[in-house]
Simulated assay, not measured.
Amino acid sequence: MIVQDLGRIDYDAAHHVQLQRRADVEAGAEETLFLLEHEPVVTVGRSGRAKGLMVSEEFLVANGVALRKTERGGDVTCHFPGQLVAYVIFRLAKRPGGVRSFVQLLEQCAMDVCAAFGVRTHRRDGFPGVWTETGKIASIGLGVRRWVSYHGLALNVGEDLGPFEWIVPCGVASARATSLDFERRHVAEASGRAYPEPIPMETAKHAFVQAFRKNQAAAPVAAGEAAQG
Results as ranks from 00 to 15, higher is better:
residue 120 R to M: 13
residue 128 P to M: 07
residue 48 G to R: 06
residue 201 M to F: 04
residue 102 F to D: 00
residue 43 T to S: 14
residue 200 P to R: 05
residue 157 V to I: 14
residue 143 G to L: 09
residue 59 F to T: 12
residue 109 C to E: 10
residue 44 V to T: 07
residue 196 P to E: 02
residue 144 V to G: 01
residue 168 V to Y: 00
residue 162 G to F: 12
residue 136 K to V: 03
residue 44 V to H: 04
residue 16 H to Q: 15
residue 136 K to P: 05
residue 125 D to Q: 08
residue 68 R to M: 15
residue 137 I to R: 05
residue 20 Q to D: 15
residue 115 A to P: 07
residue 28 G to K: 00
residue 53 L to Q: 06
residue 11 Y to C: 12
residue 220 P to R: 08
residue 120 R to W: 08
residue 228 Q to R: 14
residue 47 S to F: 12
residue 6 L to H: 09
residue 95 R to F: 11
residue 156 N to V: 04
residue 228 Q to F: 00
residue 66 A to E: 14
residue 9 I to L: 15
residue 118 G to R: 11
residue 227 A to Y: 00
residue 227 A to F: 02
residue 66 A to R: 14
residue 113 V to M: 13
residue 19 L to D: 10
residue 35 L to I: 13
residue 53 L to G: 06
residue 119 V to N: 02
residue 86 A to Y: 03
residue 9 I to W: 05
residue 227 A to N: 04
residue 199 I to P: 02
residue 37 E to R: 09
residue 67 L to Q: 00
residue 113 V to G: 04
residue 187 V to T: 10
residue 223 A to I: 02
residue 24 D to F: 04
residue 182 F to A: 09
residue 54 M to C: 15
residue 117 F to D: 01
residue 94 K to R: 15
residue 154 A to R: 05
residue 170 C to V: 02
residue 99 V to G: 01
residue 85 V to F: 12
residue 88 V to K: 04
residue 147 W to C: 02
residue 203 T to Y: 02
residue 29 A to W: 01
residue 198 P to C: 05
residue 86 A to P: 07
residue 111 M to A: 14
residue 148 V to G: 05
residue 18 Q to D: 11
residue 171 G to C: 05
residue 229 G to A: 10
residue 12 D to Q: 15
residue 184 R to C: 02
residue 126 G to C: 06
residue 17 V to E: 11
residue 138 A to W: 03
residue 145 R to C: 07
residue 167 I to Y: 00
residue 225 E to W: 08
residue 57 E to K: 14
residue 153 L to W: 04
residue 24 D to G: 07
residue 149 S to M: 07
residue 58 E to D: 15
residue 155 L to E: 01
residue 14 A to Q: 08
residue 41 V to Y: 08
residue 27 A to P: 01
residue 1 M to W: 04
residue 125 D to H: 08
residue 123 R to K: 13
residue 199 I to R: 00
residue 91 R to C: 12
residue 166 W to H: 06
residue 136 K to H: 06
residue 118 G to F: 13
residue 137 I to S: 03
residue 147 W to Q: 00
residue 98 G to E: 08
residue 146 R to C: 03
residue 220 P to Y: 07
residue 177 A to D: 00
residue 119 V to R: 05
residue 59 F to D: 13
residue 22 R to L: 15
residue 62 A to N: 09
residue 221 V to M: 05
residue 51 K to P: 06
residue 131 W to V: 03
residue 111 M to L: 12
residue 11 Y to A: 12
residue 9 I to S: 03
residue 206 H to T: 13
residue 47 S to A: 15
residue 123 R to Q: 09
residue 197 E to H: 04
residue 146 R to I: 01
residue 135 G to Q: 05
residue 78 C to P: 04
residue 169 P to A: 07
residue 177 A to R: 06
residue 214 K to R: 15
residue 68 R to W: 13
residue 30 E to S: 11
residue 196 P to G: 04
residue 113 V to Q: 06
